[in-house]
Write a protein that binds this DNA or RNA. Sequence first.
DNA 1: ATTCTAGTTTATAATTATTCTAAACTAGTA
DNA 2: TACTAGTTTAGAATAATTATAAACTAGAAT
Lengths: 137, 137
Amino acid sequence: MHQKKEIINKLRSSNLRPTKQRILIAKKLFDKKETFHFTAETLNKVVNRKGQTKISLATIYNTVEAFKKAGHIREILTNNSKSYYDTNIKSHHHFYDPETKKLTDIDYQEVILKKIPNPPKGKKIKDLEVVISLQKK
Amino acid sequence: MHQKKEIINKLRSSNLRPTKQRILIAKKLFDKKETFHFTAETLNKVVNRKGQTKISLATIYNTVEAFKKAGHIREILTNNSKSYYDTNIKSHHHFYDPETKKLTDIDYQEVILKKIPNPPKGKKIKDLEVVISLQKK
DNA sequence: ATTCTAGTTTATAATTATTCTAAACTAGTA
DNA sequence: TACTAGTTTAGAATAATTATAAACTAGAAT
């Protein structure tokens, strides 16, 4: 799917030097069929599975921040103490289960808004996110 | 508006012993005309303004947690590293300005949803929150 | 009223997530 | 091949929050 070349282009196009660490992290993030929800901690685990080349935690954080700024990943709203990120950068929504702390994507078309308020003066809407918290039935 | 008696009843009704600390914090939180958005830090400042009896930060955290569990306050979704709380416990929505990190209430009626997805099996919807992030025009 | 006890408060230590620092390293140009 | 700006790294620093355990107190029992 995502060959090394594509990944390198993606990095270059956002002014990120394609280092071996960034390429490896990008592979792990974007070489998935499905949307990937992660925290710095989980990404660190995935990237540094036994035997693989070691990438420092600082680089994990740096890269996540760089990818976020470049718009390759998005930060998700939760009321958890960790930051959650999503490889799905299309505007979409989430179910959040406070029990398991798991997020699930809700496709954009699954939520239709009939009315939204005007933003305050001097501001425009950057993003609109719906979070549906769940509980046991 | 909220006399001491009412506050004491509110505390008792949720099995919280009405201590002098809890009463004072409750006054600061609920004795307002408007909705109050706060973090542990801001609440600590409000409660411990010069001259007032000192309430420890640990108690601020304990009390916020207790009030949240009791349903007297709600935690708000943001992607900020601090936890934000709201004395408005009615279902409602927010504008979030990442620049100033300020939240503004959006009245419930200002957002109308035409379609929302079914929750996953075994789960029901606990809460639905819309967050509209802002940026400079 | 006095005593008792479980619940609460407190200062402080510990923990967790994240950011900073500054030295070592490397991609890519000259 | 050498250079330089960008990047990585280990580890220290910081920020927010939670845990600990000793002292205190509300309110029931005596």
